[in-house]
Design a protein around this nucleic acid. Structure first.
Lengths: 231, 231
DNA sequence: CGTTGTGTTAACCCCGTGTGAAACTCGCGC
DNA sequence: GCGCGAGTTTCACACGGGGTTAACACAACG
């Protein structure tokens, strides 16, 4: 499950990018009303909040922080985005937020602060992932799960599945797969790919084996088969 | 009485200015040696520490942080000053510092962060222990116990286990471990890691040896291969 | 000088990987 | 339907590289 971070009032440019880098996904509340926030909240709650105090009236931002802090369910760390001239306004409001970034917002700094506060809040699961349907691959733990079940993949199996899953629906020839997954200067038989696909299908289980489809005389493709639209 | 903040390795320009604005006085330790730090310490202890990681070898800065955290008397919040290119190096070291500022250092931002952390210092305590399943590590006494039994770990063993245990489930390559645990400029064979892992596993005992898992052709990981998710 | 901690070297071993061949399936023409 | 060939799946096996392990070298420290 990917952690969801509340974003107010928007999530664009470097902010979105930083969330990606930090391995969390945004839930955007444009108004910042508590009702809107509540509607966006996933069952597991928010992992944190990024509030762009430079993006709407400063007092509204402060009020939102206060309200978030008073909620029964925690939102995790609150990170404030402010302009330089707003720095003084933060004094005596230290309890309302956990960290802040001064604009213009730098992607790496924002991402680092996000990670820092999330991990310090005891959140271990901040990690880059590839998720596609029932398949989830955690790139930092090298663990892959299908429908919640852990698959015990070997190195090459993992790399192949990761490549396919990060490019769903696209068909790759065996030669392409060999060069992209195994390496450019790799020189080996094309049957190698077949065998690895077979092993992957076996570990995916009968139910999910079809996630890797054979495209006859072309190659392989990852994803659920797109049904031709009828009509 | 004015709070004293430890400054390493110097306190000039915007840094001094920011301390003034924040209303604290500096104690400058130019070398960053623990002995020097101790000599500077007032009876009431330090209120916090500002460490300019851009001002001396990064690894020394990290070691200093670690040592400060291990002291029996608290130093309060640790604020790191870093260059932009050092941001990535902060990852996986979230427990060693409480906040950071990216150069070029801005007086108001630095002052605001100082105030913020000093004021929040009371309610946010750094976990002095790492606990994971049967493993418990006391960061102050350098003692580690597994299932209640005290393990007699050497320095490197302790540091390696601590690093792995504070980042459970995550896979680290030998190179990463060498740079993060041993140090940046460390240049040694990758087998070194293997051997230390082996010694750790031996001391963990047969029953718990599996806490450090080998991920073939990738590296090592700490934790039980539990299924993730669930939240 | 023993002791203890740390890093290196090299032998050993095992598992992941690639390969060839057999079995099988699909598409096509008759 | 039948036969055929190209393409794919499946299997068993050999090899090599990566991991484990023990023994050694060496520095630090008393």
């Amino acid at each position: 499950m990917i952690d969801v971070v509340l974003c107010v009032p928007s999530c664009e440019g470097p902010i979105r990018k930083a969330l990606e880098v930090a391995g969390v996904s945004p839930a955007v509340a444009s108004s910042g009303r508590l009702a809107e926030v509540g509607a966006l909240e996933p069952a597991s709650g928010f992992a944190g909040a990024v509030i762009n105090a430079a993006g709407f009236p400063f007092n509204d931002a402060m009020n939102l922080c206060r309200q978030l802090r008073h909620r029964t369910t925690s939102v995790g760390p609150i990170i404030l985005l402010v302009d330089h001239y707003q720095l003084d306004d933060l004094t005596f409001r230290e309890d309302l937020f956990d960290d802040f970034v001064v604009g213009p917002f730098d992607v790496s700094e924002l991402a680092t602060r996000l990670r820092h506060r999330l991990r310090r809040a005891g959140n271990e699961s901040v990690a880059a992932r590839v998720v596609h349907g029932d398949l989830a691959m955690n790139l930092e733990t090298y663990q892959a799960t299908i429908a919640g079940r852990v698959m015990d993949l070997t190195y090459m199996e993992y790399e192949l599945l990761r490549f396919l899953a990060t490019n769903p629906q696209r068909v790759f020839t065996r030669e392409t797969l060999l060069s992209r997954v195994w390496g450019y200067e790799y020189y080996g038989g094309a049957r190698t790919v077949d065998v690895h696909v077979r092993r992957l299908r076996a570990k995916l289980g009968e139910e999910h084996a079809h996630l890797i489809q054979t495209v006859r005389s072309v190659g392989y493709r990852f994803g659920v088969p797109e049904r031709e639209e009828e009509g």
